[in-house]
Design a protein around this nucleic acid. Sequence first.
DNA 1: TTCTATTTGTTCGTATGTATG
DNA 2: ACATACATACGAACAAATAGA
Lengths: 244, 244
Amino acid sequence: MTPSVPKYSAVADALVDRIRAGIYKPGDLLDSEPELTRQFGVSRHTVRAALRALYEKGLVIGQRGRGTVVQATAVNPRYRHACNSIEDVLQYAATTPRQVVARRRLVVDEALADWLGCAPGYSWWEVHTTRRQDTAGPVVASSQIWVPDAFGDAINDIEATDEPLFVAIERRFGCTFAQIRQTLSVASASAREATDLGVDEGAPVMCVERRFVDERGGLLEVSRSVHPAQGFRYETSLRRVIGT
Amino acid sequence: MTPSVPKYSAVADALVDRIRAGIYKPGDLLDSEPELTRQFGVSRHTVRAALRALYEKGLVIGQRGRGTVVQATAVNPRYRHACNSIEDVLQYAATTPRQVVARRRLVVDEALADWLGCAPGYSWWEVHTTRRQDTAGPVVASSQIWVPDAFGDAINDIEATDEPLFVAIERRFGCTFAQIRQTLSVASASAREATDLGVDEGAPVMCVERRFVDERGGLLEVSRSVHPAQGFRYETSLRRVIGT
DNA sequence: TTCTATTTGTTCGTATGTATG
DNA sequence: ACATACATACGAACAAATAGA
């Protein structure tokens, strides 16, 4: 009966397809909102919701009095790591085979609790994984992941798949991550990380720390991934916020 | 009469103030949308536009059937570089004194044109600047900036101020940057960069490349900034995209 | 230059769907 | 089962900016 995907989302997908197909090219004007209203048989409100979705992807920018301008063609992920939403993290994970190297349970002490941003004294799991560019390729990421004790069962689920741990947690425990706080920095490879990545100990690496937060603001997972300096690029797009 | 700022923007500012003042704390529920409608005397549509602005800043997340949950208090910029919008770049620039080291005009050859993403054969300006943590502090950024020949006059404007070049270009030429495409990577310091930052040549640095694009999709400025690996952190927040 | 038509941005109203407690 | 809350979707009107006659 009621479609599982909202109308505005379907319209947005259709427009993304058109851009990807080259029907609209960067610099072109999209069809006007009244025109799209006719084409898709939806209200202007719905068309605008769809255009906002494209705007948030960095694909278009609206200009009053002129039209909606295509800014970029759809993202074309290569070795780069294009990142504007949680879905982009999923996309990256889906294309890089992962291996679970080790796991252990520990009680969070003061120092770790402070760094994780949780209360000390509780039992958490610490998982060590690596990701390769492809099945036989070089290691492109060495990660440590921490999750509360209760989520330990989800770790079993990811042994055989490449999906991120947080996806397994969502499926098994029915909770939903709504936000990821991310910090990028340059770090020196630890002995273990150096071994994983095949670089010298102390070599520069790109370090990505992520804190996964649910809708209630609760901390549900923390990860620290290091990538070899060579070849790792993190791409993002900023927009002006005045006048959504 | 006609307010220069839209109503939804004023409401959004008021809500950010409340969060910053601690009236709502992380994990708290905001007042409901009908309640906010009464408080501000605007329609629910306007309230929702304001809440969307807060959502896009990563401050709140809506949950149907429950309410709108505060996710974080307003960004508290320190030495870190919190970056979710062009305004955050401005904020960063406003707090770090800048010095113009050198400038020259050159004709873009094939290789540079390919890297910049423009057509070869045209004349561009290349500017070399540094930024310090504070007036007497260490250099925290060494930048090269390229702009088309026509914008050369704007370079004079920034000799005496700390504002980014693109702000001077906007003011003087009346054009507007609508989007910045950003790439972060780990690089090795060149001789000049090493001198600027006070590190060894070849030392690891965080490299931030930015391409400034106007509403029409035209490339108006390219910059490449390197930051010392020690102490540079780039923070951002990812959210789940609804629908899709 | 002035005027007009077009286009996006903002704001109101109303109704229904869906998830939560 | 019920009320509450946010999400989606329809309609309408005016404002502001642009482009072209």
